[in-house]
């Protein structure tokens, strides 16, 4: 077996620190997700309205967030707000803000897509049975929208978890940062540590995202 320098993980509290880093990453993404989902629902519903001002505004927001690399958004919020408004946001809060802005945009687009994918005839046939607007929304449109939405939004959650690896750029010590620190600290004693530590990081990301993907697959199968 090649030397992967795995022994560095057992030095001191290294492995626990790595797990702590993973928790930071998960904390940021889960917080952002729980903010993005309700806001994204709202955004998506606004986007399906036939209101020109709303359409232009929401479209602009969505496209702006989309074309911006997440890293640039992180810099804008972390450094920009200090420079422009004198705010002193800490790294983790900035990350939550950026991931929420991003998540809301993506979620909004998913909700919009799911809403318009429900054929108008479904609404009409429900109306023809004498259902009122709220009844149609509650029993026909929303259940079908949610079924389409859940696999897509779960995909978004895993993307968010993976993208938290960027927040080390604004000084947040998450898993990737911890792993770099461990590798740096053991450069002399275990020069191969990068292999083992990054392999571990890979496995930990996998363990965090895989169950979520499995859940999405199960739901997709049950509701197809």
């Amino acid at each position: 077996m090649p030397d992967l320098g795995l022994e560095v993980l057992w030095k001191g509290r290294n492995f626990v620190r790595l797990l702590g880093g993973l928790w930071t990453a998960l904390r940021i993404s889960l917080l952002a997700v729980s903010i993005s989902i309700p806001l994204g629902m709202l955004l998506g519903m606004l986007m399906t309205r036939n209101n020109l001002v709303l359409v232009v505004l929401t479209r602009f927001y969505l496209e702006f967030i989309r074309v911006m690399p997440q890293m640039v958004l992180l810099f804008l919020v972390f450094f920009g707000t200090t420079r422009w408004f004198g705010w002193n946001l800490d790294g983790e809060l900035s990350s939550v803000i950026v991931f929420s802005l991003w998540g809301t945009a993506e979620m909004g687009d998913l909700v919009r897509g799911a809403l318009i994918s429900i054929p108008a005839q479904q609404t009409e046939s429900a109306a023809a049975l004498g259902m009122t607007r709220p009844q149609i929304l509650r029993h026909i449109v929303l259940p079908q929208t949610l079924r389409r939405l859940i696999p897509l939004s779960i995909n978004l959650i895993t993307r968010m978890i993976k993208t938290t690896s960027l927040v080390l750029m604004i000084g947040v010590v998450e898993m990737l940062k911890v792993s770099q620190q461990i590798i740096e600290a053991n450069r002399m004693s275990s020069p191969n540590a990068a292999f083992g530590v990054y392999l571990t990081v890979f496995l930990l990301y996998f363990l965090a995202c895989w169950p979520i993907s499995l859940l999405s697959k199960t739901l997709e199968k049950r509701w197809s």
């Binding site: 054929p119 479904q122 023809a128 259940p143 079908q144």
Partner: peptide, 16 residues
Amino acid sequence: RQQIGMVFQSYELFPH
């Protein structure tokens, strides 16, 4: 509309 039943070309059963 409860007094008028309507059946559509594309059935429009509720898939869920």
